[in-house]
Design a protein around this nucleic acid. Structure first.
Length: 129
RNA sequence: UGAGUAAGCCAGGCGGCCGCGCGGUGCGGACGCGAGUGAAGCGGAAUACCGCUUUAUCCGCGUCCGCACCGUGAGGAAAGUCCGGGCUCCGCAGGGCAGGGUGCCGGAUAACGUCCGGCGUCGGCAACGAUAGGGAAAGCGCAACAGAAACAUACCGCCGAUGGCGGCUUUGAGCCGCACAGGCAAGGGUGAAAUGGCGGGUCAAGAGCCCACCGGCGUCCUGGAGACAGGGCGGCCGUGCAAGCCCCACCCGGAGCAAGGUCGAAGGAUUCCCCGCGCGAGCGGGAGCGGUUGCCCGCCGCUGUCCGAAAGGUGAACCGCAGGCGGACGGGAGCGUCCCGUCCCGGAGGGCGCCGGUAACGGCGUUCCCAGAUAGAUGGCCGCCCAUCUCCCACGGGAGUGGACAGAACCCGGCUUACGGCUUGCUCACAUA
RNA sequence: GGCGACAUAGCCAAGUGGUAAGGCACGGCUCUGCAAAAGCCCUAUGCCCCGGUUCAAAUCCGGGUGUCGCCU
């Protein structure tokens, strides 16, 4: 992922749970908070309630893929945590994707409008270098 | 065809686009180091030349970042952590006790509770499977309830031959009764289990008391490497439990990669020494500490007392004392501990072929490097084929769904558990020829 | 990843081979005008599940499931 590092420490997750904004659907809960940096930081949580290692790995990889393919739609400078819920175990990829995108829209995380387009163009030139 | 049984194999395949971890190669950029060249400045000098600094360029090496290409990338159970090892650290003269484990015989192995071959027993019509399967005449213990009795017992019962008592006939004695002494364990009843089973003989009634068959025990002979098998003889003095204690034989040091090492950074506690402080007449020792990783003996190391010239002995007579005792702070040295981060910790290896062995397995040759992440890399979408299930039209296609169990974390050998499919051999039943 | 412990009624729990104690709760009865308190009575075809040993298993042995804890 080009402009994103992963969130690792437990206290960072806890800070988001307490102080961040959240939105939820049956598939997942998304927490977000401004981090004051030029990049996004992403954390994904899949608890043991959702199944064995194989099921949890599949959910985590799908969430990661959804973020990767839709990265340009996100605005930058945020810490984001996605917590998977029970329905994501049985949902297909596209159902999960539309669910996450609607949650993003609910949190106003989408980089919509003109400045976002400029931002995006800037990213692309940066990437071209 | 159906049912069963054993062994082996696979873990959907191919292609396209985007994406991830690791390794390699190449290119580019940044930084650092080294060497060369040019320019400028300063100093020495004589203009040449030498030294230093700055800067530019080029080459080499290293680190980091980016891009491209190539290679590679989860399992048969990766799981449970039930056994066994490697590896790492700690410990280790030896012995005993305790504790744990294994338990038919022979072999395989690094080792095993695993595997292979065989024996006995049990289950199955069979193929085949299961089997903690040493010892109960070494000892202790338990066997509830029921039952008379659960090591030596007789409730109901059978008998009463022998002895006793009574009666009758009659007088050689015999017969009948009683059930007092006594004999018996067949039958009933209880129980999971009742003193080998069944049949016959004998007998007062019975009983291995005797006999035939079976079972079991002891002993002898034969076969076998052995477990054991077969046979002869003797003769039945009870049973179960050792996955109860135990006995016998053999094995076992403890912990675990969150072990351990290394480098860098940071702080704290501890040991010894030194300095300084307090105490004011008893104080301290007579062995102390540490190790022997459950305990003991014993042993070892350091410190220390006494005897002895020493080797060595000693653990008590008694010995020492302001150069003592005590605790707190500061300084120095040493050794550990904790925390943060970096790096390291890689063959009982796989494939193929030949040979030895019934087999497990072993030997030789050849060939291949075959995951190394560190919140954890394998994913997403599309097309075709194959396979599963559902629905629809009708004998073939269409649509949808999508694989069963399941994800490495130091590594191996097993076991167990979860689970989809394919192939082959064998057994039984039915049908046909 | 490694190491260890536990599971018995709705809850807390005792029970180490022979009838599964006890307390709380629930229910019923007595008492009361009604309740509370008190007293009496009742509740495990079975001890997390599956096998094995045994005449007999909550207990002994093996395997599994679940829960909890410790080690960075």
């Amino acid at each position: 992922m080009k402009f994103t590092t992963s969130l690792k420490k437990n206290h960072e997750f806890k800070r988001l749970y307490n102080k961040g904004k959240s939105a939820a659907s049956q598939c997942a809960v998304v927490y977000c908070r401004r981090n004051g940096k030029a990049e996004n930081r992403l954390g994904i949580t899949v608890s043991a309630k959702l199944g064995g290692a194989v099921q949890r790995n599949r959910i985590r990889r799908r969430l990661k893929e959804i973020y990767r393919t839709n990265e340009e739609k996100f605005s930058t400078g945020y810490d984001i945590v996605i917590v998977a819920r029970m329905r994501s175990r049985y949902a297909g990829f596209f159902e999960l994707q539309s669910s996450i995108l609607s949650l993003i829209k609910k949190l106003n995380l989408t980089a919509g409008g003109v400045p976002a387009a400029q931002n995006r163009r800037g990213r692309e030139t940066e990437a071209a270098k």
